[in-house]
């Protein structure tokens, strides 16, 4: 109970923070506000970066740019995965075989490379990265859905519903698919952390939005040289990534405990 509540609060807080990020930011993240490499002070809470831009504003904008695309990726890949998993479980036979092998293929090939290749083909940018990652992220959800739907097919209420004349589409959506929802929800929440890290990885490699856009991974990458002298410049975005990932992990654990 408490775990579930903590989970929801954590997720809600992150979403609110991410949504309000641009409003809370004290300065324009693209403009210089002072000399570069300023230490954190009352005027600039996280100091300034190597260009002289307000680091706090950049981090807040960066969190927004990490959070919402991640939500989109999770949503799409869960939707694609659930649909394909349910389809395979319901159809059975060769349809199921093909879909199962397909999801195996995507699992075996390092998804990072497929996503990188896709971005190389369609160009870099935040939403290009979102599309590329969504295309390779679905197999996990497909497998969860397929396994839950198949497990529940053996339960008596499915037979009873069949006898009662429930048609296959309604049988799948109202009777079998809900079995997968708890697992899917937990999986999605735990997955958020991975997606945030993956997006940061993309922007670290320069495949996200181009500079000077405030993207957490890219910010950390570009300021690595300053790690030993002005450590707050690379650490602030890295810590922001950590906070996002940690909050979602906490939420996922809480949800899992609540469902058990």
């Amino acid at each position: 109970m408490i775990a579930g509540r903590v989970a929801c609060i954590a997720l809600g807080a992150m979403t609110v923070l991410a949504a309000l990020g641009p409003l809370l930011a004290p300065a324009n993240p693209l403009l210089r506000v002072d000399v570069p490499y300023l230490e954190p002070s009352l005027q600039h809470w996280l100091g300034t970066d190597e260009i002289g831009r307000d680091l706090l504003s950049r981090v807040l904008y960066g969190m927004t740019r990490a959070w919402f695309p991640s939500l989109v990726i999770i949503f799409f890949s869960a939707a694609i995965g659930t649909a394909l998993g349910a389809l395979g479980a319901a159809a059975g036979g060769w349809v199921d075989l093909v879909l199962d092998r397909l999801s195996e293929l995507f699992t075996v090939i390092p998804s990072t490379f497929v996503a990188l290749a896709t971005v190389a083909a369609i160009g870099s940018g935040t939403w290009h990265a979102v599309l590329a990652i969504s295309l390779v992220w679905w197999p996990w959800y497909a497998r969860i859905t397929r396994s839950e739907v198949r497990n529940v097919a053996a339960r008596p209420f499915v037979s009873a519903a069949r006898l009662a004349g429930v048609r296959p589409p309604r049988l799948l959506t109202r009777y079998q698919l809900p079995a997968a929802f708890p697992s899917l929800l937990v999986a999605a929440t735990l997955d958020m952390a991975n997606v945030i890290l993956m997006l940061s990885f993309f922007s670290f490699l320069g495949l996200g939005a181009p500079a000077p856009a405030p993207e957490l991974g890219a910010m950390a990458a570009r300021s690595m040289v300053s790690l030993t002298t002005h450590w707050w410049i690379p650490l602030a975005p890295a810590f922001a990534i950590f906070v996002l990932a940690f909050a979602t992990n906490l939420a996922g654990d809480g949800l899992r405990t609540a469902f058990e």
Binding site: N28, L30, L31, R32, E50, I51, G206, A211, P212, R222
Partner: peptide
């Protein structure tokens, strides 16, 4: 080159011109 390029981008931004910086 990264820092001069981004500094120029920030200067352009203050004029109202958005600039993307790529390597």
């Amino acid at each position: 080159q990264q820092i001069p390029a981004e500094l120029i981008a920030a200067q352009l931004e203050s004029l109202g011109i958005h600039a993307n910086v790529r390597v």
